[in-house]
């Protein structure tokens, strides 16, 4: 079992266990990681589960698809490795992954 670390905007770190097959949004919510709202419950339709994948880990998660980009385009704090956490399905290969949380979700 590996782990993923979410880092809040002001620096607080939350290491949580990977549950393969679940989305990163779901894993964060299940573990009470603050800073994700997930207003649409994982449908890529609200943009409030925005995370910024740390550096090279984007190759493990893959880039945002078209549908996802539509929503991301309108989020504040948008970065090149921005993703919607509900669209990243956890795999064992993500052991050690770091995802930054934006200051605000919108």
């Amino acid at each position: 079992m590996g782990s993923i670390t979410f880092i809040e905007h002001h620096g607080a770190e939350h290491a949580v266990e990977i549950e393969t097959g679940k989305s990163l949004m779901q894993i964060a919510m299940d573990n009470g990681v603050p800073g994700i709202d997930a207003d649409c419950g994982g449908e890529a339709a609200c943009g409030t589960c925005h995370v910024i994948v740390d550096g090279n880990w984007i190759s493990a998660t893959g880039k945002a698809g078209d549908e996802e980009l539509q929503m991301l385009d309108m989020t504040p704090d948008r970065a090149p490795t921005s993703r919607l956490a509900c669209q990243i399905i956890a795999t064992d290969a993500m052991d050690g992954l770091v995802a930054h949380l934006p200051e605000f979700q919108m």
Binding site: D37, A38, D39, C40, G41, A45, G47, Q70, M74, M106
Partner: peptide, 20 residues
């Protein structure tokens, strides 16, 4: 539980801009 998962602000690209 999950009170935020409602439709009042719509979803998708037109999702309410003033929701916050």
């Amino acid at each position: 539980k999950n009170a935020r998962n409602h439709l009042s602000f719509g979803f998708g690209v037109h999702r309410c801009m003033g929701n916050r």
